[in-house]
Simulated scan of single mutants.
Amino acid sequence: MVLSSVAGGGKSTLIQMIRAKHPDLAFSVSCTTRAPRPGDKEGVTYFFLSKEKFESGIDKGEFLEWAKVHDNYYGTPVIFVNQCMSAGKSVIMDLDVQGAAQVKQKLGKEAITIFILPPNEEEWEKRLRGRGTDSEESILKRIKNGKEELAHKDEFDHIIVNDTLEHALSRLEEILF
């Protein structure tokens, strides 16, 4: 299953919450070329790759999906997803709208796509600023890109409004289980 949202929409928090309740749910750790943020851990939050190594992986077909977002590459290692699926395990992926579309195209009905929607623009911007990890320039870029991503929300199988984490988590469990 694929969760997407605008930056600051709450998908990472919801993924942590659902995995705490359902530890058998495998999380697909993505690769990225962005710099680590405070608290990031190699192999846990992301696999941090150089631009050259990532582009080599693209050429070799090592990604189920990949995209360039906010001037950095992001991608899902195909080997991990294939191993989980072969073992009958469900996989949850934290992807942008481009990645979700690629996974849906490649996996078809096996991929459930869910868009996490902030309750309104004011709350969304408050969440972005509240993280305290991005510059003003980065926040403005994320808002601009997020508005473009919002235009694709109706392409997803499900939309969850993240008005409260408890409500959003409950809705996510209804969809997944």
Rank of each mutant, 00 (worst) to 15 (best):
S5N: 03
S5W: 02
A7P: 10
G10V: 04
L14E: 03
I15A: 04
P23S: 07
L25D: 01
A26T: 00
A26C: 10
F27Q: 09
S28N: 12
V29G: 11
C31E: 07
T32Q: 12
T33V: 13
A35H: 09
A35P: 01
A35C: 02
A35R: 13
P36A: 14
P36W: 10
K41D: 10
E42M: 11
G43R: 01
G43E: 05
T45K: 08
Y46Q: 12
Y46V: 08
F48I: 13
E55L: 14
L64S: 08
E65C: 15
V69K: 11
V69Y: 13
N72P: 00
Y73T: 04
T76S: 12
P77A: 07
V78G: 05
I79F: 09
I79A: 14
F80L: 13
F80K: 11
Q83M: 08
C84E: 06
S86L: 10
S86H: 12
M93L: 11
D96S: 15
Q98A: 10
A101Q: 12
V103N: 07
V103I: 15
V103P: 05
K104G: 03
K106W: 08
K109R: 15
K109V: 15
K109L: 15
A111C: 14
A111T: 03
P118W: 02
N120C: 08
W124F: 04
L128P: 00
R131D: 13
G132L: 00
G132T: 00
E137N: 06
S138C: 10
I139V: 11
I139K: 06
I143Q: 02
K144E: 11
N145G: 05
G146W: 06
E148P: 01
E149A: 14
L150K: 04
L150Y: 00
D154M: 06
E155K: 14
F156R: 05
D157M: 01
I160F: 08
N162P: 05
H167L: 14
L169N: 00
L169R: 05
L172Y: 06
E173A: 08
E173Q: 11
E174I: 05
E174C: 03
E174D: 13
L176R: 08
